[in-house]
C-alpha cells in the first residue's frame, strides 16, 4: 500500500474531524442541558453557510465578515426557536420526561422540514460557495500533501471557537450555571438558578454556535448544497454520543476520532474496491454510533447517568 495515500487520508480526516467536532458543539449543549435533540442540526449549519454566501455574492461582503454576521444570525435564530418552539414544551417543566423529549424531537423535526425546503426553494440544489475567492487562496504543503488555506482557516477558527466556548462554560458564572443545570436541573433551580433563563441562553448559544459552524463547514467544503444536511446532521449525532452529552471537549475529540476513522476506513476499503470506499467509510461511522449507544451510552467523556 502506498504510505502517502494513508498519510493524506489521515491528515484530511483529522482536519475534517475538527470541523465535525465543532459543528456538534451546539448539538451537544442543547442535548446535554435541556434534552433537546436538534433534528434541524443540518439546517442550522446550512443557515450559516448560506448567510455568508448571500452576503458575499449579493453584496460583495468579505467572507470573514459574513462569518461574523452568520454568528449573529444564529444567535437570533436561537432566540426565535426558543420562544416559538421550545418554551412551550420545556420552558416550565422541571423534569424533562421521555414524552417531552419526544415532542421537542418532533418540533425540531418540523423545523428541519421547513428550513431544508426553504433552502431548496431559495438556493436550489446546485453547489454554492465563495467561488473565485476560495480558489484564489494559496496552498500549503504538509507531509507531501497540499492543503488549501481555506481548510486551515476553517480549522483555526473552529479551534479558537471551541476554546472560547470551553472557557465560557468553565470560567464565567453564566457558563457555570449552564453546567449546573446540565448536571441536575432540579437541584440547580433550588439554589436559585432561573431555569427558563438558562434554557433560553442554552438555545441561543447552541443554535448560534451551530449556525456559526456552518461558516466553517462552507470554508472547508468550498461549496455547499442542501444535501450536506444529510451528512453533517447524522454524523453530528455520532459525534455527540461518542463525546458524551454536553461535553464540549468530548465533542471536539470525538469529531477528530470520527474524522480519522472515516479517513482510515476509506483507505482500507479502497485497497479492495476504490469505488465503494466512500459509502463504506460512512457506514463505518454509523456502526460506531450504534456500538457506542449499546455499550457505552455515556460516551467517552460523559459521566454515567
Amino acid at each position: 500500500m502506498d504510505v502517502s495515500i494513508l498519510a493524506i487520508n489521515l491528515v484530511n480526516g483529522f482536519l475534517w474531524g475538527i470541523i465535525l467536532g465543532f459543528a456538534a458543539v451546539g448539538l451537544t449543549l442543547l442535548w446535554g442541558v435541556m434534552k433537546v435533540v436538534n433534528l434541524a442540526q443540518g439546517e442550522a449549519i446550512l443557515m450559516g453557510s448560506y448567510v455568508a454566501i448571500v452576503l458575499f455574492s449579493q453584496y460583495g461582503i468579505s467572507p470573514l465578515i459574513g462569518g461574523l454576521v452568520a454568528l449573529l444570525v444564529g444567535l437570533a435564530a436561537g432566540f426565535l426557536i426558543y420562544w416559538a418552539l421550545l418554551h412551550k414544551l420545556v420552558g416550565k417543566v422541571e423534569k424533562i420526561t421521555l414524552k417531552i423529549e419526544m415532542s421537542t424531537l418532533l418540533a425540531m423535526f418540523a423545523l428541519s422540514i421547513a428550513l431544508l425546503n426553504f433552502y431548496y426553494y431559495i438556493f436550489g440544489s446546485e453547489p454554492r460557495g465563495f467561488g473565485l475567492w476560495s480558489i484564489g487562496l494559496p496552498f500549503i504543503r504538509v507531509l507531501g500533501t497540499t492543503i488549501r488555506t481555506n481548510i486551515l482557516l476553517a480549522d483555526a477558527l473552529a479551534l479558537i471557537s471551541v476554546t472560547i466556548v470551553y472557557l465560557f462554560l468553565d470560567r464565567t458564572i453564566l457558563g457555570k450555571s449552564i453546567r449546573a443545570v446540565m448536571q441536575d436541573a432540579q437541584a440547580a433551580s433550588l439554589v436559585g438558578i432561573n431555569p427558563v433563563k438558562i434554557k433560553l441562553l442554552t438555545t441561543v448559544l447552541g443554535i448560534g454556535l451551530t449556525v456559526f459552524s456552518g461558516f466553517m463547514v462552507l470554508l472547508f467544503e468550498a461549496s455547499v448544497t442542501p444535501e450536506i444536511a444529510y451528512k453533517y446532521a447524522p454524523l453530528g449525532f455520532v459525534v455527540v454520543v461518542l463525546g458524551g452529552l454536553g461535553s464540549v471537549v468530548g465533542s471536539l475529540v470525538a469529531g477528530i476520532i470520527i474524522g480519522i476513522i472515516y479517513g482510515l476506513s476509506k483507505v482500507v476499503v479502497s485497497i479492495f474496491n476504490p469505488r465503494i470506499s466512500d459509502p463504506v467509510a460512512l457506514s463505518t461511522a454509523f456502526i460506531v454510533l450504534i456500538l457506542i449507544l449499546l455499550f457505552k451510552p455515556e460516551g467517552i467523556f460523559g459521566r454515567k447517568r
Binding site: M102, P279, L289
Partner: peptide, 26 residues
C-alpha cells in the same frame, strides 16, 4: 437498539438507515 430509549433510539435507527443505505450502495 430497543435497549435504547427516546432520542437515543430515534438516532440509532437513523444510523441503521444510513448504514443500510451505504452498504447497499457498496
Amino acid at each position: 437498539v430497543l435497549r435504547l430509549r427516546g432520542a437515543f433510539f430515534a438516532i440509532a435507527t437513523i444510523g441503521l438507515d444510513f448504514t443500510a443505505l451505504y452498504l447497499m450502495k457498496a
